[in-house]
Design a binder for these strands. Structure first.
Lengths: 114, 114
DNA sequence: CTTGTATATAGCCAATCAGGTATATACCCT
DNA sequence: AGGGTATATACCTGATTGGCTATATACAAG
């Protein structure tokens, strides 16, 4: 499983996305992370392991606590992948550039297309 | 399963990402999409169904062909979600703003941090 | 109406997943 | 050492996944 696979798979679960969102505010222990969820502690630990294996969190040691912190860099790769599609979703076109090329500016381009 | 779940889950498979990448170049039939892969046609059809259910492709009809085209809009939502983390991965900091606040500009801020 | 081509569906299987409970481990405190 | 707290691991289960083969459907062309 490559990095991109692992990243997207980790992000596919809403519990894990919520955990990452929480970690934007800073480090948190497993108990703290588990608190908002109607889910057992071992299940949260499992989600944390998925995030850790994907490189999206790292863990420290504070007495018996294992605080989690966000490691956002792998998200950059996912973001880069998505960027390839940006012009398509933002322009609301499907190969519009090629189409325009084929039409050879039949009409004056007035940019009112959306 | 919400939209974001479906989007990220669809993107977690390299075959599906390759199919989407191919579709940037324009519509393609199932056979055309299957060609680069050492995989049976029904398996490709299954992947296409996952992409369609996630709203990432739509399909037309051309005789017995069912051409696929990219529907990139759902990717915008995924991109928006990732954007929340951009300043973290780009700044190479972990709650640096809060940390700087706590230190109360102990040193003159010269912006050479990265 | 038969044949060929493109695609979808059904059913099988092994692997993974997401949850659970029970238990083990790690660390602190007295 | 013994007790409490935080976390991890082991194991079970049902659902989902990703692949396969075999078969069904949709359409075009003769």
């Amino acid at each position: 499983m490559n990095q991109l696979d692992a990243t997207f798979a980790a992000l596919a679960d809403p519990t894990r996305r919520a955990i990452l969102a929480r970690l934007i505010q800073g480090e948190a222990s497993v108990m703290e992370l588990a608190e908002p969820f109607a889910m057992s502690q071992p299940s949260i630990s499992k989600h944390l392991k998925v995030l850790e294996n994907a490189g999206l969190i790292s863990r420290g040691r504070d007495a018996q606590r294992r605080p989690c912190r966000l490691e956002a860099k792998p998200l950059a790769e996912a973001n880069d992948w998505l960027e390839r599609y940006r012009k398509i979703w933002e322009g609301n076109f499907q190969r519009l550039d090629a189409l325009l090329g084929a039409m050879k500016a039949e009409k004056a381009p007035d940019s009112t297309d959306q």
